[in-house]
Amino acid sequence: MFNAFEKVFTVKESDTAEAVGSGGLPVLSTPHLIAYMENTAMTLMSEELNEKDTSVGMEISVQHLAPTALNKVVSVKAQQTDKSGKVFTYEIEAYVDEELIGKATHKRAIVDKDDFMKKVRP
């Protein structure tokens, strides 16, 4: 059985579509929903890492299903569904008051921190 993890976020004004420019309304933006989802999977995946490694997101397919108001609590649940070498796959669901507001399939890879940073162009 693969691991699962749940994390809770509260929608701040800086998380809204209006604030980030992805829309014109004061509701949870899709970019921030994705960030909540990636952060939850990253936290779950951290159990698999040694101190010289980190994980990086490499793919996400997301459906943003319902709007979420400012100050609402979003519960994000990540379930690892596959592991292929250093690549992990997660199914993620986000809920507000037990209503599904988003779902995603997300892949993360384990990378050596130093090796990865050497690839960053200045």
Rank of each mutant, 00 (worst) to 15 (best):
G102H: 02
Q63H: 10
K7N: 10
K52M: 13
A104E: 04
E18S: 11
K118Q: 09
V11G: 01
T68D: 08
V73N: 12
E99M: 09
T43F: 11
S61W: 08
I60R: 01
Y90E: 03
E6L: 04
R108P: 00
D114E: 14
K107E: 10
S55V: 07
V120R: 07
A35K: 05
K7M: 10
D115C: 07
L44A: 08
S75Q: 15
Y36A: 01
K72L: 15
S55Y: 00
S55D: 00
A109R: 02
V11C: 03
I60P: 01
K77G: 00
T105I: 15
R121W: 11
K103R: 15
V62Y: 03
V76L: 04
S14Y: 06
T81A: 05
D112T: 08
I101W: 00
S84D: 14
E99D: 08
F9H: 02
I34A: 15
K72S: 15
P122Q: 13
A109C: 07
D82S: 14
V74L: 04
A35E: 04
H32M: 13
E93N: 10
L70H: 04
G85V: 06
Q63K: 12
V8F: 14
S84K: 13
V96G: 03
E6D: 07
I60D: 02
S84H: 13
I34Q: 07
K118Y: 05
T16E: 01
P26M: 09
L49Y: 03
K83W: 06
L33W: 00
S14L: 10
F88C: 05
K107I: 07
Y90F: 15
R121L: 13
D115K: 14
V74R: 00
D114L: 12
I110W: 04
E51T: 12
D15G: 07
E99H: 08
V56C: 10
K107Q: 13
I110A: 06
V62S: 07
V8T: 15
M37H: 05
F9V: 03
L100F: 01
L70A: 03
V27A: 03
V20I: 14
I101F: 02
A94C: 07
M42W: 08
R121K: 15
L100P: 00
Q63I: 08
